[in-house]
Write a protein that binds this DNA or RNA. Structure first.
Length: 260
DNA sequence: CCCCAGGCACAGC
DNA sequence: GCTGTGCATGGG
């Protein structure tokens, strides 16, 4: 009944799609880092130091079968999506990592997002960032990342990094705020609009009531539920799925990419 | 040459 | 409030 599909989860377009790499079948390692996760006898395992991290990354506290059961009740689209993606988990990667990934993702395609984000894990001088993983904001501010050819996104990213590193923009303070308030605060960051803000809330801060509307989710909701305008979709998702809107969104995203 | 890619900022109603 | 346009870069 309960199932866990590591590969599907990591490669489903969430933050780990851009920050983890496959090292063997059913095995992944954090880019420029040491954390590892793999499947063993149908169970998720990880490097010892990453035990706590894995619990957060894959939201292991969530009762996913119960959530999937609830959101597919009386819903043919999600029933089908849940059947197809039963092992798909929502992930939580922390706000900075998610900010970088989804700021870079705007008006961009997944292979190139991967390439750019990979480049943001290692400084041009070849040195790894001290703690492993993606470059911290205070490091990014001084790094020359022009070789990554991010286009206009580079200025957004650097300005955002500066605000986070120097002017004390606090992601942590957002955790205690309501969704709309937190969203508005995130949109003060240059290059962060409604969609990226919702991605940071969902994939970064674990706000599962967030419902990012990218082109695929917009298409999905328009086609399958007949709802079109951004604010209408927002209200529709909140009313229909509440705190599980993020799960619904992830299922719809995967489903739409295959069906539409 | 065109259009698109997990959008955003800005202008003009 | 909503709608249109330019935007760096690469691929089809």
């Amino acid at each position: 009944m309960d199932s866990f599909d590591l590969e599907l989860t990591i490669e489903s377009g969430q933050t780990p799609t851009f920050t983890w790499e496959k090292t063997a079948p059913q095995r992944f390692r954090r880019i420029a880092g040491k954390d590892e996760v793999w499947m063993q006898d149908g169970r998720l395992e990880c490097s010892p130091a990453f035990l706590k991290g894995a619990r957060r990354l894959f939201r292991l506290q969530d009762n996913v079968p119960a959530i999937y059961s609830r959101i597919s009740e009386g819903d043919a689209v999600l029933s089908e999506a849940v059947r197809q993606y039963a092992g798909l988990r929502l992930t939580e990667s922390g706000p900075w990592e998610s900010t970088v990934c989804f700021l870079v993702s705007q008006n961009n395609n997944i292979p190139r997002i991967k390439q750019i984000v990979r480049g943001l894990h290692v400084r041009p001088d070849g040195l790894n960032p001290a703690s492993g993983g993606i470059m911290r904001p205070e490091k990014l501010v001084h790094a020359d990342v022009s070789a990554l050819k991010m286009g206009y996104r580079e200025a957004f990213l650097k300005q955002t990094a500066r605000l986070v590193a120097e002017n004390g923009f606090s992601f942590e303070r957002l955790r205690r705020r309501g969704l709309d308030e937190a969203r508005d605060a995130l949109m003060e960051l240059p290059g962060v609009g409604p969609k990226v803000a919702d991605c940071i809330l969902l994939y970064g801060l674990g706000r599962t009531e967030a419902f990012p509307q990218d082109v695929w989710v917009k298409k999905a909701v328009a086609t399958w539920y007949g709802v079109t305008k951004e604010n209408n979709v927002k209200e529709f998702a909140a009313e229909k799925w509440g705190n599980n809107a993020g799960y619904a969104q992830q299922l719809l995203f995967c489903h739409a990419r295959e069906q539409l």
